[in-house]
Structure formats: structure tokens, C-alpha cells
């Protein structure tokens, strides 16, 4: 393998680790989810590097795409004004 590939792999993994770190410690949930989508795309790259194009496709579509959308939706939902809890008294039941 060439040095170039080494450098690429190094950068890629470093970026993944960095992204993971920052998305896990990001205060703003929305930003964290965006970072997560970015992380998913990097993962897809990593799969390609590991000669697993099938997984790369799946990762991009399912993990980054689908999960990302769902996460964004959820974050949107819980950012909306706090709904009145319907029936907290039944919680203990």
C-alpha cells in the first residue's frame, strides 16, 4: 500500500473519531444529529475503503439517511412547545 492510502485512511478514521466525539458532546441536539449524518457518510467511505461497497450503500441509505431523518423528526418533535402531560397521575399505575 502506498503512503497516500495510509494518509487517507488516517485522515478518514481521525475524522470519524473526531466527528463521533463532537456529535456525542455537542450541546445542541439538532447540530448533533447533523453531525451524525455526516458521520454516517464518512462511515460509508470507510466501507468503500474496506472493499465493502454493499455495506457502503446500505450505510448511506439506511444508517445515515433513514436514521438521520428519523432523528431529525424526533428532535423536531421534542423541540416543539412542551405539551401538557395528559395524565401524569396514572404513571404510578
Amino acid at each position: 500500500m502506498t503512503a497516500l492510502t495510509w494518509i487517507f485512511d488516517g485522515l478518514l478514521t481521525a475524522a470519524m473519531v473526531y466527528l463521533a466525539w463532537s456529535l456525542l458532546s455537542e450541546r445542541d441536539l439538532f447540530k448533533a444529529v447533523v453531525l451524525f449524518i455526516a458521520f454516517g457518510l464518512l462511515m460509508a467511505l470507510a466501507w468503500v475503503r474496506l472493499r465493502a461497497p454493499d455495506i457502503a450503500l446500505a450505510e448511506a441509505a439506511i444508517s445515515a439517511g433513514l436514521s438521520g431523518v428519523l432523528l431529525l423528526d424526533a428532535v423536531g418533535a421534542i423541540r416543539s412547545p412542551n405539551p401538557v402531560p395528559e395524565d401524569t397521575s396514572s404513571d404510578s399505575g
Binding site: 463521533a20 456529535l23 456525542l24 441536539l29 448533533a32 444529529v33 451524525f36 458521520f39 462511515m43 444508517s63 436514521s67 432523528l71 424526533a74 428532535v75 421534542i78
Partner: peptide
């Protein structure tokens, strides 16, 4: 503690 973060963390573990 935030559940979204936990789910994210789960995905990172999975990755």
C-alpha cells in the same frame, strides 16, 4: 441522560 444522545451513542457503538 438525554435519550436522543443515547440513541446516537448506540449508533456510534454499532458503527
Amino acid at each position: 441522560t438525554h435519550l436522543v444522545r443515547r440513541i446516537l451513542a448506540f449508533n456510534i457503538m454499532g458503527s
